[in-house]
């Protein structure tokens, strides 16, 4: 390969990459820079008043402040409500539908069908169940939108339902990779169904379960529509997740707080990503 060919290849590579790089620069890295900037400068409430440096101390004040911590805690509660239940139900459905039966495809299609619903759709769907005026279950106290102790749970339930299709599909795909001989061997060794499940199946599908956990955690961080449409953040701010709070901080004078909180959210996403990377590394070891 001659030098000219090399140069041509470079040019081609960058030409192919250019559109993506431009998008990333403008809509991922520029905003990261701007978030940092906004978090360090307080904008004036006066027309043309400009901005004033407030420094890292101000960022820290936000990140250690009640509003951020409370939003984080509500977000974590939302994760606690959605992630384990989501995985458990996905496993349940997948275990039930992973068998040779006539017509099993129909059931598999039904179980995966909630993939078709968006967060907004599933939120509207759940209004028929939990809305305090018209919901079928409006008098069920542990789902009540009227109480700060239960409203988040109602919103979380709609997410669990919406994610059922995805969790089912992923667990089912993982189950299908479990070699049948292995199960038969375990059966012959006298393992009962329960032991077979926990000793053989779970370890083999655990990468998929971890992946699922990560996906659900990321979805949880991104939860917005179900809050806006089902609870409106209330009652008593009990369902204001971090993202929900951030979106309310877009006025000029709020930008410093909003940007600081966004960086906090970035930090949390980053932590999850670290866990994910660790996981990938471990899975490589598994694979070998």
């Amino acid at each position: 390969m001659g030098k000219r060919r090399n140069v041509r290849q470079w040019a081609l590579a960058y030409a192919l990459l250019l559109p993506s790089l431009v998008v990333f620069a403008v809509f991922a890295y520029l905003p990261l820079y701007r978030l940092v900037h906004f978090s360090l400068y307080q904008q004036s409430s006066r027309l043309g008043g400009g901005e004033r440096y407030v420094g890292f101390g101000a960022v820290w004040d936000v990140l250690s402040g009640e509003r951020f911590l409370q939003g984080t805690w509500i977000t974590i509660k939302f994760l606690i409500f959605t992630v384990p239940a989501g995985i458990a139900l996905g496993v349940l459905l997948a275990m039930a539908a992973h068998r040779r039966l006539k017509g099993i495809k129909i059931f598999q299609t039904i179980f995966s069908s909630t993939v078709a619903s968006s967060v907004a759709v599933s939120s509207v769907v759940f209004l028929t169940l939990v809305n305090e005026q018209i919901g079928l279950l409006r008098n069920v106290s542990w789902l009540s939108l009227k109480s700060p102790n239960s409203a988040l749970f109602a919103a979380a339930l709609s997410s669990v339902w919406q994610n059922l299709g995805l969790t089912f599909v992923i667990v089912l795909a993982a189950l299908q990779t479990v070699p049948e001989e292995l199960l038969e061997a375990a059966h012959l060794d006298g393992y009962g169904a329960v032991r077979r499940f926990f000793r053989v199946v779970v370890p083999l599908i655990s990468p998929a379960l971890f992946f699922l956990a990560i996906v659900l955690v990321v979805y949880g961080f991104q939860a917005y529509a179900q809050i806006e449409l089902i609870t409106g953040g209330g009652p008593l701010r009990s369902t204001e997740t971090l993202l929900y709070r951030i979106t309310k901080l877009q006025k000029n004078t709020d930008l410093q707080v909003g940007a600081s909180m966004s960086l906090g959210l970035f930090g949390l996403t980053f932590l999850v990503a670290l866990v994910q990377f660790r996981l990938l590394e471990r899975r490589v070891t598994y694979g070998n």
Binding site: L21, R34, L35, F38, L249, Q250, G258, F266
Partner: peptide, 23 residues
């Protein structure tokens, strides 16, 4: 360049929302 691309996965639209809207 590859790492720069991959790292954008850490910057979902929810994180960059208010800055992007501003821009």
């Amino acid at each position: 360049v590859m790492v720069l691309c991959a790292a954008t996965l850490l910057l979902p639209i929810e994180v960059t929302l208010i800055a992007n809207i501003q821009t």
